[in-house]
């Protein structure tokens, strides 16, 4: 309903937690707590939000694009180690197979077990992030300036891969309601690469990917951290239905929700940079209540503006979970 711009009976939610936050929840609710059941999210996400990886030992993982991830420090996603494409050329590089069964592993069972949920297939690191994991962050930014043709070529091939995956998902699993694209473009102020670069290099491939999702009759939800306000009109024009994580430290959540209600929904909003780690329970309650009140008219799905981090006091986690669930009582 919310994604169609209609007024819901209560504000839906979908909250994520990092491994460290989950550990705190287990300590509080008991080791055998089923967090999915406890939180009772409205979404179920299949696919992978940060890529398909296999363990290769020594606290390292390798994703299907050949990127090695060091899991020593950042245990949820990891940190890229080395460069798959040290030079701006695709000579000798083979793209992964979009028919790799790993990409669709266990989907039938998960769909069957979650028929009452809004079923999403996640394509994390969907364009720019996939690019920089292959080329390295600094090279990625320099490539926009130095090797524009190579950037366009690699972006096109990444999008082609995603489009093939979208086709497989939509044709094989008609129960899937939407595709969830993750790709960080925002900095604390404005886009990291600037709007002109985003429009020239990233937007054309986004439009192509999003048009494919729409052609299959699916919703599309996107995630980009940071201040992405200046590109919301372009995202709407490309057919985006929902924008996450709606960070209150960098975006005016009240203003955006009122401005774009009926055109695009927002998912997020509860401060993970300030209120959750540093606020009191009263602060968390006040902010959550405000967001739920604003969301009553539609256009809003509640969650913290990032996976809840391990530095959030457990009392603050319990506070927002209790409030969102109380809506249904």
């Amino acid at each position: 309903m919310v994604l169609d711009g209609k007024q819901p009976p209560y504000v839906p939610w979908d909250c994520k937690f990092t491994i460290e936050a989950l550990d705190k929840m287990k300590a509080h609710y008991g080791d055998d707590v089923d967090v999915e059941e406890l939180v009772d999210n409205h979404f179920i996400k299949l696919g992978a939000s940060s890529g398909f990886k296999i363990n290769i030992g020594n606290d390292r993982k390798k994703d299907i694009f050949g990127v090695i991830w060091d899991m020593t420090h950042e245990k949820d996603i990891g940190n890229v180690e080395g460069l798959v494409l040290p030079e701006p050329t695709l000579d000798g590089y083979e793209f992964p197979d979009p028919n790799n069964p790993m990409l669709y592993d266990g989907m039938e069972e998960k769909i069957a077990a979650n028929k009452d949920k809004f079923i999403l297939y996640s394509i994390g690191f969907s364009l720019f992030e996939r690019y920089w994991t292959l080329r390295g962050m600094e090279n990625a930014f320099l490539d926009f300036m130095m090797y524009p043709d190579f950037v366009k070529d690699l972006m096109r091939k990444i999008a082609d891969f995603n489009i093939a995956v979208i086709k497989n998902v939509c044709e094989r699993y008609p129960e899937v309601d939407g595709i969830y694209f993750g790709d960080d473009w925002g900095a604390q102020k404005k886009l990291m690469m600037g709007k002109d670069v985003w429009i020239e290099f990233i937007y054309p491939e986004l439009k192509r990917m999003y048009a494919n999702t729409k052609a299959h009759g699916k919703y599309q939800l996107i995630h980009s951290c940071g201040d992405i306000e200046e590109i919301i009109p372009e995202l709407i024009e490309a057919g985006v239905n929902c924008i996450n994580p709606f960070q209150p430290e960098v975006l005016d959540v009240d203003d955006l929700l009122n401005t774009y209600r009926g055109k695009v929904a927002f998912h997020g909003g509860l401060s993970t940079q300030k209120t959750l780690p540093y606020g009191t329970v009263e602060d968390v309650v006040a902010e959550t209540k405000h967001l739920l009140e604003m969301g009553k008219d539609g256009g809003y799905i509640f969650c913290p503006s990032h996976a809840t981090e391990g530095d959030t006091p457990i009392e603050n986690i319990v506070a927002f979970i209790d409030l969102i669930k109380a809506q249904k009582c």
């Binding site: 930014f141 300036m145 102020k189 404005k190 886009l191 690469m193 600037g194 670069v197």
Partner: peptide
């Protein structure tokens, strides 16, 4: 002043 962004700054640094 948000007139240039990370790519342009990196080029200047190079």
């Amino acid at each position: 002043e948000n007139k240039v962004f990370v790519p342009q700054v990196l080029m200047s640094a190079k």
